[in-house]
């Protein structure tokens, strides 16, 4: 069992300037215990299709 001790002192952040928070990201001003963020982005070479127009599979 690993013991992890944290002592928080006064924290002051001057100013925050963010362009974007996107795709289930988190910007948190506060305390937390667990954060699990996962992301998949798929753009393989096969995703480049040079051919006459092929529509994507239709919704049901």
């Amino acid at each position: 069992m690993m013991n992890f001790c944290v002592e928080n002192k006064q924290l002051y952040v001057g100013s925050v300037r963010i362009i974007g928070v996107a795709s289930s990201s988190i910007f948190l001003i506060g305390d937390t215990k667990n954060i699990t963020l996962s992301s998949m982005f798929d753009t393989p070479p096969e995703s480049v299709i040079i051919s006459p127009f092929v529509p994507l599979p239709a919704e049901r």
Partner: peptide, 16 residues
Amino acid sequence: ALFQIGSNVTSQSETR
């Protein structure tokens, strides 16, 4: 996405 001012216990996120 989430912008939170305050405390949180568990956050889980998935993006595809």
